[in-house]
Nucleic acid binder design. Structure first.
Lengths: 242, 242
DNA sequence: GCCGCCCTATGTCATCCGACATAGCGAGGC
DNA sequence: GCCTCGCTATGTCGGATGACATAGGGCGGC
């Protein structure tokens, strides 16, 4: 079931800059397909040579890199509205992989049209760049976590960051949100072992700032979580969406 | 001493895409100043609200973030030709700081002209995006290091990455290169303590794959370093330079 | 010329985190 | 219905890394 940009239920949310009908029509000419993938599907492969560009329409995904011996690092999580695959598109070969965490829908934005797009719709080119810059700032924050926060702080920073992002999208209800991450995903995102992640989560749960169970995240005290993690960046809104 | 783009000695190096006189003239209209700063100068401040965009013309610099209690994480190192400040420029407020490691020269590319640039010179807009994507790929690799490599592997990966980048710029002579990093910088870039960095460096020196002393990096066996670090990405050339 | 500071070096000890082992639970296959 | 597999949980142990202390060399200030 194809979703036309003119009828896109995502882009009208307050998290996003609202566009004129004309601008939406432009984006529609770029979008070439609307894909549905099951949880676990890898839609960008490391080393892939003809990678495309996507906007995540619904669901969660992540980007990752791994070492030859199998150690995996998740680079960032993507939520609806996020652009995935810009580096791959620019370089013609992907330095990372991207995987669906849940069933997802993706808007396909063919990379062969990317140069053309910059020429004809510079405003859109600018927004692509903006979204690329935002993606980098998420990775920057994750690097700060992995390099300089302790295990409990890392988890708290991840929770604070995801919660704030989900909140701008309207995914939070009563301090609660669907969190389709296993502890293995959390460990891989934070540079921790699975076992240590599990034990640290148990200790954090006892502190009652937040809890993760049965696929849901419940934040009892966002201020407390942010303070503990020293995580003070708010998600930027409104932001472009393509 | 202002350096005109038409007379720029950097952009003619083989690492960079060669531009027509016309294109260089376009860039010249964007460049508004040529700055000289001393080692240690901070030219983008965290939280700064009117950040500009720069191309590093000569010398080394780095971007960093820090926690409220002072722990610092270096996000990446910049070498000549690298664009610094794109996120800051897009968001209007810098999420990170940037500091000169050596005396540096910077080309000032005023952010207020950025939107205009995309409109009038879409090709340049595309290249700005390309450079932003490359910056992110450097941070991705650093996150992989901090999250999933051991201390010795991290140092080796940093060495391999910097060596390969310096090589494309012609900064390597006889396997040797000026490396203006203190052990504290290395520690802050890799998420290690200063003392542990020092001891790990000593152990690596004994393995004779490479050595760092007196401000120089000597690589005896690049293959060996790359294999040990599991670092197999080559720097991309030729690449745009603005 | 002396002092202070930055950088490097090295030893000892504490701690954080990872590795390995085991177990319970629930979903899905057949 | 039973088995397997994935996910969560918990204990023990060892190793990697951090914290603290001390020292030497070089360099700039005055």
């Amino acid at each position: 079931m194809y979703v036309r940009c003119a009828a896109c239920p995502l882009r009208v949310r307050p998290a996003f800059l609202q566009k004129s009908d004309e601008e939406v029509a432009l984006i529609e000419t770029w979008k070439s397909d609307h894909l549905r993938l099951e949880a676990g599907a890898e839609f960008i492969h490391p080393e892939q040579t003809d990678p495309e560009l996507f906007t995540l329409f619904s669901g969660w995904a992540f980007r990752y890199k791994e070492l030859a011996d199998g150690r995996r690092q998740i680079l960032n999580f993507a939520l609806p509205g996020d652009l995935i695959g810009l580096q791959s598109s620019m370089f013609g070969k992907s330095p990372y992989g991207a995987v669906a965490l849940t069933d997802v829908e993706l808007c396909l934005l063919p990379r062969r049209k990317l140069g053309r797009l910059f020429e004809r719709y510079p405003e859109l080119g600018y927004e692509v760049t903006w979204l690329g810059a935002r993606a980098e700032s998420l990775v920057d924050e994750n690097l700060l976590s992995a390099g300089r926060r302790g295990a409990a702080e890392r988890i708290a920073a991840l929770v604070a960051g995801l919660y704030k992002r989900a909140e701008t999208l309207g995914l939070v209800e009563d301090g609660t949100l669907e969190l389709p991450l296993t502890q293995q995903h959390i460990a891989d995102a934070l540079g921790l072992s699975l076992v240590h992640t599990n034990k640290t989560l148990a200790r954090l749960r006892a502190q009652k700032l937040f809890g993760i169970s049965e696929g849901r995240l419940i934040v009892h005290n966002l201020r407390g979580v942010s303070r503990f993690a020293q995580h003070f960046e708010d998600d930027i809104t409104p932001r472009p969406m393509i």
